[in-house]
Amino acid sequence: MRNRLLITAAVMTAVSGVCSPAAFADTPAGDQDTAFVQAAHQSNLAEIAAGQDAQKSAMTACVKDVGAKLVTDHQKLDADLKALAGKSGMTLPTEPTAEQQQKMKAVQEKAGTAGYDAAWLADQEAGHTKTLALIGQQIKAGTDEAVTATAEKARPVVAMHLEMVRGGTCHTM
């Protein structure tokens, strides 16, 4: 039963688009906890880059402000993940997934136009929705208490970010 849950979790995570196959490359088969840490780290890297880009490319103050909030919060979340990975001997990817990079590039192509903010908000809504699903899966199926505690700590932050971009409308908190 446990193996079936772990396999289901890995498949759901991979299908969600948050994890690329590369996120599982260094992961022992069925290791939900390592897969979560790697995927969450890549999501943090993507959010930090997106937030930095919004601060320089967004047309509205709200999107710039939300971008700054994402940078600050995801740097803190990622520091926790890096510490956890270091203690556990996990290898972390060095960049966002290819899919995350491609989406970022598509948004960046709209820099300096009215379409940038809308594209950025839509991308952030999709990304944070996927990350919440990833967190939920870790909380449900994870076996490492420290990794699951890190996921639980991240959940309200990611949920707040989702509310800030939900529906393609910018909301500062």
Rank of each mutant, 00 (worst) to 15 (best):
T172E: 11
G167P: 05
A154D: 01
T91I: 12
K103C: 06
V157R: 06
G30T: 02
I135C: 01
T94V: 12
G67N: 11
M104K: 06
A159D: 00
K110F: 08
A40R: 10
G86K: 04
L162D: 01
M90G: 03
A39M: 02
T72F: 08
I139Y: 12
L134Q: 06
V15N: 03
V165E: 04
A22R: 05
Q38H: 09
H128F: 01
E47V: 01
G89E: 05
Q108C: 06
I48C: 09
A133Y: 12
K103S: 13
A154F: 00
A58T: 07
A23M: 12
N44Y: 03
G115Q: 14
I7Q: 14
V18F: 00
H171I: 01
E125D: 15
D73E: 15
Q75T: 09
P96D: 04
A111H: 04
E99N: 12
A29M: 08
D117Q: 11
H41V: 08
A14G: 02
W120T: 03
I48P: 07
G127E: 09
L5K: 03
K140V: 14
T129I: 03
D78P: 05
Q101T: 12
T60F: 09
I135F: 00
C170V: 13
K56V: 14
A46P: 06
E125F: 04
D65P: 00
A122P: 12
R155M: 03
I7N: 05
E47N: 02
M160A: 15
T27P: 00
K64W: 05
G127N: 10
G167T: 03
D26H: 10
V37K: 13
V15P: 00
K82E: 09
V37Y: 04
D117M: 12
L84H: 08
M160L: 12
T34R: 05
P93R: 12
A79Y: 08
E152F: 01
L162I: 02
G115P: 14
F24P: 00
T8W: 10
V63G: 01
P93G: 10
A85I: 02
E145K: 14
R166S: 13
H74Y: 01
A133H: 07
A111T: 07
L81Y: 12
T131V: 07
A119G: 15
T143D: 03
Q100T: 15
G17V: 12
Q138K: 06
D73K: 01
L6I: 04
A146Q: 13
A79C: 11
A49D: 13
E47L: 00
M59Q: 15
Q101L: 08
A146D: 13
Q42D: 10
E95K: 15
T169H: 14
R155Y: 05
A61D: 11
L6G: 03
V15L: 09
Q32W: 02
V165H: 02
T172V: 12
T113G: 13
D26W: 01
D33G: 10
C62W: 02
C62Y: 03
K153H: 01
Q108G: 15
